[in-house]
Design a protein around this nucleic acid. Sequence first.
DNA 1: TTGTATGCGTTATCAG
DNA 2: CTGATAACGCATACAA
Lengths: 356, 356
Amino acid sequence: MKKNKDVLVEEQSGPLMADVARLAGVAISTVSRALANPGRVNEKTRVKIDAAAKQLGYTPNAMARSLRVGKSNIIMIILPGSLYYGASQIIPQVLQSINKALIQNGYNLMIANLDRDEESERHILDLAFGGTVRGAIILSSKLPEVDGRSLANAGLPIVSMLLDMSDAGLPSIVTNDREAVREVTTELIRLGHRRFLYIAGPEGNYHDVERYGGALEALRGAGLSEQAVSRSGGSLDYQEGFEIGVQAAADFARLTDKPTAVIATSDDMAISFISRVQRTGLNIPGDLSVVSFDGSPVCEFCSPPLSTIEQPVEEMGQAAVARLLGAIGDSDNEPETRTVVRSRLILRESMAAPRR
Amino acid sequence: MKKNKDVLVEEQSGPLMADVARLAGVAISTVSRALANPGRVNEKTRVKIDAAAKQLGYTPNAMARSLRVGKSNIIMIILPGSLYYGASQIIPQVLQSINKALIQNGYNLMIANLDRDEESERHILDLAFGGTVRGAIILSSKLPEVDGRSLANAGLPIVSMLLDMSDAGLPSIVTNDREAVREVTTELIRLGHRRFLYIAGPEGNYHDVERYGGALEALRGAGLSEQAVSRSGGSLDYQEGFEIGVQAAADFARLTDKPTAVIATSDDMAISFISRVQRTGLNIPGDLSVVSFDGSPVCEFCSPPLSTIEQPVEEMGQAAVARLLGAIGDSDNEPETRTVVRSRLILRESMAAPRR
DNA sequence: TTGTATGCGTTATCAG
DNA sequence: CTGATAACGCATACAA
């Protein structure tokens, strides 16, 4: 036993390809080939190299490889500024599905931002222009842009998810929101509802236009006036969904000709809205039916259980990754710039016929 | 106008340091210094270089830098297998606080995993041993380990957050769970409660031991028997919190000497539990008080609004990053291996005196 | 203060 | 099929 003070545990950088080559008794370039392209090397040497690599516990250095081939294997996800605006409840699921699909294809997921201040914008652009990332999935309608640089000019494949940005030339993975709202509204009309409250997210964005549009289409289809639906929310400032629902409840209280059905554009909005109107003694769904968007797991356990139009997040995540990797593979294949995934209404007790 | 078919938009790799150097009329190494260490270069040339860099829209290549200095600026976060086990509701907040703190210090956040299967384990270890990441924040009690490699031997600074892993030698950022449960239980006793139901997460993990222990301490402190508290949950398999709550409600129904107060170890559990027992006609808090853990935003809008012990996520995220960057700075400073952040009880209507 | 030269760990090109 | 060698973009030791 020897005393070992002053032992300096230096940056243990792990075994290199050179170490593997030495142990296997071959050239370093042969190791590279054996590992990357097992077919293009003699079977016996391949075995030898594999054994050496395993014995040393060799793990290739990803950054060196990226630098050499000029391509990173990191994909970044760009989130909207406030997590709680709309789909806060499903963000973990979104990340999960995207990450899983990426890993299976040898890519990594980096979180570019969770705020949307100038510091974050700059950070996102550094990631893009600094060669750190190979592509981006964006869940916001605003492309990062600051002091001259814009993500649009980064020469980076970008796929939009949740929001339709095909106008801006981005392949987009979206749900059939318009149709979904049209159908659910039609169903509400069939149940006997004639006055509606629509609780909006950011006014004029894709979701707002599509969903509100779908509601109007249903009204027209049933021969009802568009005046039958009131709007609440729609502020342009970022607000948490919960906050919007609270305000919508206040708006509701002020309405003279009370709606009997509410269409909320996120579960958060619906949950806080319901909480507030129940306090005033209203019964749901007796006095008021509510349906919302997102399909958060918590909806099942609300009182009453909440009808919600599910975002098929798993499917969308996979589609987004597939599109992105497709764009990375061959840069100029734009088969269809918009992929529509069908969403599904989960019908629960919060929706019923209005009582007279 | 010329026809330009066959235009091959080649990998536009952007301006390099060499380009900046050329434009500024200096050597490439001078540019490097001017950008990294503005003090060690003549003021006039610095200005010239800055101007050239700005004009070209130069962004340094992060991977090349990392490779050169032998250190990445990417931190990975390792999440527990199932997002919905416990703290699903606060994951976005956790990510947000960590990411913000990292960005401010020039680091990036990478998501290592969202599952915990073998593929994910391997992936995490590749990230660690492949030099992609510089450090890790782990929110799970299980250190990735597969075919010989273990994260513990990666020579990587690791900080544990939420769970106490100081036994394993990891600096840990945790809340004072034991104390918090002791206090809230004491308060329940003061209100007149004498029978309790405790809904557990994974049995025997840090949270379980601390929280359950806190409850027992309160009972002893009040001269009550430990038999006063029943346990539910605690399965070793991964389950969503919502599922656990549903099972707990079934367990509750079978109890003969009914508890009048429930301590749930996550908001999800409490929410689904409440939903189920309310169906049986029970009034909360009239018949049954409920308090839970996490401080999810949704608790405010439950019916009744849910008392919850908040996880001070913002503070914990900052602390975790501070600890990690500290460990990166000088490798052998272990001032205190455990940082305790105080959690706070948010008192709402779900907790009250039992009615006779 | 500035420039020259070398190397980080890997892949790709070319001979052999 | 395999080996020597030159890059990838940048940072640093050293020389000027």
